[in-house]
Measured scan of single mutants.
Amino acid sequence: NITNLCPFDEVFNATRFASVYAWNRKRISNCVADYSVLYNLAPFFTFKCYGVSPTKLNDLCFTNVYADSFVIRGDEVRQIAPGQTGNIADYNYKLPDDFTGCVIAWNSNKLDSKVSGNYNYLYRLFRKSNLKPFERDISTEIYQAGNKPCNGVAGFNCYFPLRSYSFRPTYGVGHQPYRVVVLSFELLHAPATVCGPKKST
């Protein structure tokens, strides 16, 4: 009989979030998941669920729940959905087409922007091929755009693959930082360890 609440607040209220290319994953298990708490945590810009209804979450049980978190800019949030393409979905964080879970995003301009520009958040701009779903690539190998090998040196047709967002508070919403948490629900042929409040007794 599990009584402890799932530590969603640790994920959502973390002081620092990860850069999207090096997104963070927390496995959540053996706890009571009260998803209604999430609705009250922040004024969400996005709370979209796929393959599951957000209002039914509190009635369900899962084997595992994974919470992935990272920062992107406002106009990239739409890429965090099944079947999307674009720089983020292709080279940084890719959801599977049959994704079961929820994408939660909110504006973090007050936390993640600086007047002089916050350069701490990076994204991958160049990659030889698209990522597979939930693949994480943290390599910093020089990207070869031409025929000549780069031998690890940046220059003509040889690019450092990561680029930094420079978040400034005066930017338009599309270029402001957004914190994203992706909850993916895993149903294996194994005992369910993460249940809503109704199912945990």
Rank of each mutant, 00 (worst) to 15 (best):
V32G: 07
I104G: 07
F47I: 14
A42V: 13
A33D: 05
G146F: 03
V103H: 00
L122C: 10
W23A: 03
V115E: 10
P177Y: 03
E135D: 09
Y143P: 00
L125D: 01
T193W: 11
F47D: 02
A14Y: 06
Y93T: 00
Y159F: 02
A190E: 15
P82C: 01
A192L: 14
S19W: 03
D34A: 07
Y91K: 10
F156A: 10
F62L: 11
Q176K: 02
L5E: 12
R73S: 07
T46W: 11
V77K: 05
H189Q: 15
N92F: 01
F17E: 03
I72R: 02
I104H: 06
I2T: 14
F45K: 15
N30L: 07
L5M: 13
P43M: 09
Q79P: 00
P43S: 11
A14K: 10
P7T: 12
K148G: 08
S53W: 08
V194Q: 12
K110E: 09
D68P: 02
F134K: 06
A33I: 15
K48Q: 11
R127D: 00
Y171K: 00
I80A: 02
T55S: 15
W23H: 04
L131T: 04
P133I: 04
F156Y: 07
A67M: 11
I28L: 14
A154C: 07
P43T: 10
D97H: 12
Y91V: 05
S108A: 10
N147K: 06
S29T: 14
Q144K: 08
G74T: 02
S29W: 09
P169V: 04
L5G: 10
Q176I: 01
N151I: 08
P96V: 03
K94S: 06
N120T: 06
R73I: 00
F44W: 14
L162D: 00
P177T: 01
A81I: 04
R168D: 00
P82R: 03
V115Y: 09
V194W: 10
V20I: 06
L60C: 08
V52Y: 10
R25T: 06
Y143E: 01
P197W: 15
R124T: 00
I28G: 06
R73M: 06
V11T: 06
W106R: 06
H175S: 02
V115Q: 11
N30E: 08
P96N: 08
F99C: 02
L162T: 05
V182Q: 01
Q176Y: 01
I138R: 08
R124P: 00
P161T: 04
G117R: 03
A33C: 09
V194I: 11
F156Q: 06
L122F: 11
F156T: 06
S36H: 10
A14R: 09
